[in-house]
């Protein structure tokens, strides 16, 4: 997209940013492992035990959730050809919640893995509904789509609240609606590792995802099986969104902010940039979680709350620093 200084060669061009972002991630991870209300060293709890049971799971969960949402955001942006949407602006997260509530009502004893899988089906259906809406919103007005998505999500939320409220499940719904990591301990986050596998799968599809973003006509004339690719990509995205929702809760804006920041920095070639997008999302969420731990130490502020402030600020900056026409 924007002209960047010519670098010595393709390898160096990749290497320097990779080192940069790896260094940032290592610093954040170290900080995350060290910070918490219980002291790592010299406390009543053993250092190794504390790391293994609480700090490491928490750090890994933040990185995985952030990376997954960032990749999911990229996928849905390509699928509707609009830079300003993400899973919580396409009804995906909300329909996952609605599905979770419904499943909890019908089969309360079901294992969490199955719940997540069924919620993913609901999320995919909800995203399908959004795609039908999106077809009616003209391309020339790319900023209208996120508004429509927000309202669509609001309707699904209202349905979820209605169900939860009648079934006395408001507390459960509250946990899903507000993503946070303070409750993450060993044994409560391992599902998130599926995200790593899903992200790898999407990476093998990177070129096709780039083609998706060209729109149906263009993509098909280049020989892409458009419908099938889009369905697969959106199914993976729905699964990621529902896994995050069921384990840590909703984290709005991650899927929007990370891909857009990386795209401004590195351009739009997904094969080269998908790893950066994943790393960026993971880093941002981890940073938000660390900030939430520090702002009112030793109490905690949910990462979703922290992110809604900073993510919204970044969104506003993105929205106003380029002319509106070049979105989309």
């Amino acid at each position: 997209m924007r002209s960047s200084p010519r670098s010595p060669g393709p390898i160096a061009d990749l290497l320097r940013p990779a080192i940069l972002i790896a260094a940032a991630l290592i610093a954040l991870t170290t900080a995350s492992l060290a910070i918490g209300s219980a002291s790592l060293w010299g406390g009543d709890l053993g250092t190794g035990w504390l790391l293994a049971v609480s700090r490491f799971p928490r750090t890994a969960a933040a990185l995985l959730a952030g990376a997954g949402l960032a990749v999911a955001g990229t996928v849905v942006q390509q699928a509707v050809q609009n830079r300003l949407v993400e899973p919580s602006l396409t009804g995906t997260t909300e329909s996952a919640m609605l599905g979770l509530i419904a499943i909890t009502l019908i089969a309360p004893g079901m294992s969490i893995g199955w719940k997540a899988a069924l919620a993913a089906v609901a999320a995919l259906a909800g995203t399908g509904g959004f795609l039908m809406l999106a077809r009616r919103v003209p391309m020339q007005d790319p900023l209208l789509l996120p508004i429509v998505g927000l309202i669509y999500g609001g309707i699904l939320s209202a349905m979820a609240i209605w169900l939860a409220w009648n079934a006395d499940l408001m507390q459960l719904l509250g946990a899903w609606r507000l993503g946070e990591f303070s409750g993450i301990v060993q044994g409560r986050y391992e599902l998130l590792w599926i995200i790593a596998a899903l992200s790898l799968l999407l990476y093998t599809l990177a070129d096709r995802l780039t083609l998706l973003g060209l729109g149906e006509t263009q993509a098909r004339s280049l020989g892409l099986n458009y419908t099938q690719t889009r369905l697969l990509a959106l199914a993976v995205m729905s699964l990621i969104a529902s896994l995050v929702t069921v384990t840590v809760g909703a984290l709005p804006f991650v899927g929007l902010v990370a891909p857009n920041l990386i795209s401004r920095w590195r351009g739009d070639n997904l094969r080269a940039n998908l790893p950066f997008i994943a790393a960026g999302g993971g880093g941002l969420v981890l940073a938000a979680d660390i900030a939430g731990r520090l702002i009112r130490y030793p109490y905690e502020i949910p990462a979703a709350t922290v992110f809604s402030v900073f993510g919204a600020a970044i969104f506003l900056w993105l929205l106003h620093s380029v002319p509106a026409r070049s979105h989309g």
């Binding site: 900023l143 508004i147 804006f253 809604s308 919204a312 506003l316 929205l319």
Partner: peptide, 14 residues
């Protein structure tokens, strides 16, 4: 207009 609306919406979230 649309940009103004979206700004307002996001500002509300923030």
């Amino acid at each position: 207009l649309t940009r103004m609306i979206l700004t307002g919406v996001i500002l509300g979230v923030m």
